[in-house]
Amino acid sequence: MADSYAGLARHYDMIMTSGYYDYDAYARELVARIGDRRNVLELGVGTGLACERLLELVPDGLRLTGIDHSRSMLAQARKRLGDRVHLVDQDVLRMTWEPAFDVAFSVGGVWLWLDDKDGGTHLGSHLLRDDENVAGLGNLARAVRPGGLLLLSVQEAHRSAKRPLPDGLQYVQEVHDDGNGRITKDYFVMRGDTVLAHQHSTYRVFPQTAAEQLLRHAGFRAADHESGALFRQYVRT
């Protein structure tokens, strides 16, 4: 996969920590769900914000591995996390680990649930082809021990929006649904009318029934779809 966040990497932390995600809330729920499990994989580690919060809550004994296909993001993660997390330039289509992890999680990474209060819930994926999603989930299942957990974050469905950023900047996102299972999303960092950064991303979206079939086929059984939870939980069969 190409480096899909190269255009936005320099501004990513500012966007994510200015109201886009509540990493503290995600980390608290992760800690509760991880329990005493210790070998943990983050899918799409980005700049390391989620791992950093996890390490603040569980400073000892947690063995974290983070993968990402974006070298620009991993460079920032290495500055943030040092050697506290094993960071790997890799994507799920090339992942070859034998069963090693007790938990795998994604906070808006490779896969995420998009909850549209009026139009149902869909699984969003950075992998655009159906065969890629089958292969990626299969590789992930082989990396998670039987009985291990897969935790996929839940967030509001993507919509066009604007909001202020520090230092007089503005974040703008423009979202288009093509009606055929793909959503395109353009991210902009603006100063006045000047575009400082622009990122174009495309997501494959699966209706809930099709998504659950994909996950079951790969070997993940739905375990917890608690209303209002920040993650959907699956067990590796």
Score class of each variant (00 low, 15 high):
A2Q: 14
S4H: 13
A6T: 12
H11D: 15
M14Y: 10
I15N: 06
A25S: 11
E29S: 08
E29A: 05
V31G: 02
G35S: 02
D36Y: 03
R38D: 07
N39F: 08
R63F: 10
A75M: 07
A77R: 06
D83P: 00
R84A: 15
Q90Y: 00
V92S: 02
L93H: 10
M95F: 15
D102A: 07
V107E: 01
V107R: 01
G108T: 04
L114N: 07
D115T: 09
D118C: 00
T121R: 15
L127C: 03
L127I: 09
V134G: 00
V134S: 03
G136F: 14
G136W: 13
A141L: 06
R142N: 09
V144H: 11
G147W: 13
L151E: 12
S153V: 03
E156K: 14
H158G: 00
K162Y: 10
P166L: 02
G168Q: 04
Q170I: 01
Q170R: 15
V172H: 14
V175T: 15
D177A: 11
G181Y: 10
H198D: 02
S201N: 15
R204F: 05
Q208W: 06
Q208M: 10
A210I: 03
A218D: 11
F220E: 01
R221M: 05
A223G: 06
H225L: 09
Y234N: 02
V235R: 14
